[in-house]
Design a protein around this nucleic acid. Structure first.
Lengths: 175, 175
DNA sequence: GCGGAGGTAGAGGGATCACTCTACATCGTC
DNA sequence: GACGATGTAGAGTGATCCCTCTACCTCCGC
């Protein structure tokens, strides 16, 4: 069996993604995690900690989904990344970025802000490294963010648009 | 005096923008709106209606902020739009897009979804019209969304990045 | 000066919520 | 076979929340 901590984090992530951060009660979260209330509170001593645990778990899963087994040829990587974002949005119950959603739900939490910044910086860093577009982290991040937000309204059209914008990055070399 | 309905909507918008959609209680919202609880419920019969009223108000304000008094020369419009988005993010207490935030806070609401779609479609339509980039609505929307999300982490650097991506739109004519 | 429309102030109900605590089950190890 | 670690089941507590309701005020037109 997967260890309890991972099982809890996976269940929490699923619950928050499907129903948002405000709606599910702790009892709902307990059901989603598949453990007792006592065990849930042992690993995540408050509801805010449950949110953090869910996001930590999603961070790992998202990075794996985007960056594992990428093609060797760097020119092909950008399109693959955008397609993977589209596939992620399609399979994961998600409306926009879960990290932004968490911050929006509780704008006062410093821990959430820090986690958001860390998540985005890591995604941008690894995208730039994988595509060979060093120094263009923010351009890449902007397209990825735009794709994630626009996808829920425009689906594959948004992916196509992201690819087009991404190719433009390769044309003009510097800022 | 501004009529009561507008005053309420403005106060609600402010409160939700500053504190998110989950945290403020109806009593907090009453204080922000500057009316009595009875009057508040007369114009917005439930808390969900308060959210809708706030977003309607923001929609109008956002369109005015972005599209009023734009320069005549269409080549200059794009940069001005992106700068205005940056200025909006800087002055309005806002963490990412308030409409996305509302949907994330309550993913089950069909009314919220419809309002989000309407808002984004209108922004994209008017941006395309103002820049002369007909048919590129989705590209424009993707950059605008990316800028809005990335701004909170990268400020002016995100605006610069959006401008660079926007100029790329003008280069290659068609899809 | 009066009647009604539209406002304020604020107490209270019923439900829900986050969180704690007690009591008991299971299992690997020595 | 005793034990400690780790788990389940679920009742209870105090606070908070959304919303309703009663009672009163304040203009404005006639």
């Amino acid at each position: 069996m997967t260890d309890t901590k991972t099982k809890i984090a996976a269940g929490l992530e699923q619950a928050f993604a499907a129903r948002g951060f405000a709606e599910p009660s702790v009892e709902d979260l307990r059901d989603a995690a598949g453990v007792s209330l006592r065990t849930l509170y042992k690993y995540t001593p408050s509801r805010a900690d449950m949110v953090l645990a869910a996001l930590e778990h999603r961070h790992e899963r998202y990075l794996s989904h985007l960056f594992n087994d990428l093609p060797k040829a760097q020119e092909a990587v950008l399109d693959v990344l955008f397609e993977r974002v589209g596939a992620w949005m399609a399979t994961e119950t998600s409306h926009g970025c879960l990290f932004h959603g968490a911050v929006a739900a509780d704008p006062g939490s410093e821990g959430l802000r820090a986690l958001l910044a860390r998540h985005k910086a890591e995604v941008a860093r690894r995208a730039a490294a994988a595509t060979g577009l060093a120094g263009r982290e923010i351009d890449l991040l902007l397209i990825l963010e735009g794709l994630t937000q626009a996808w829920s309204l425009h689906r594959d059209t948004a992916v196509t648009s992201a690819k087009r914008l991404g190719h433009g990055l390769r044309m003009n070399s510097a800022a």
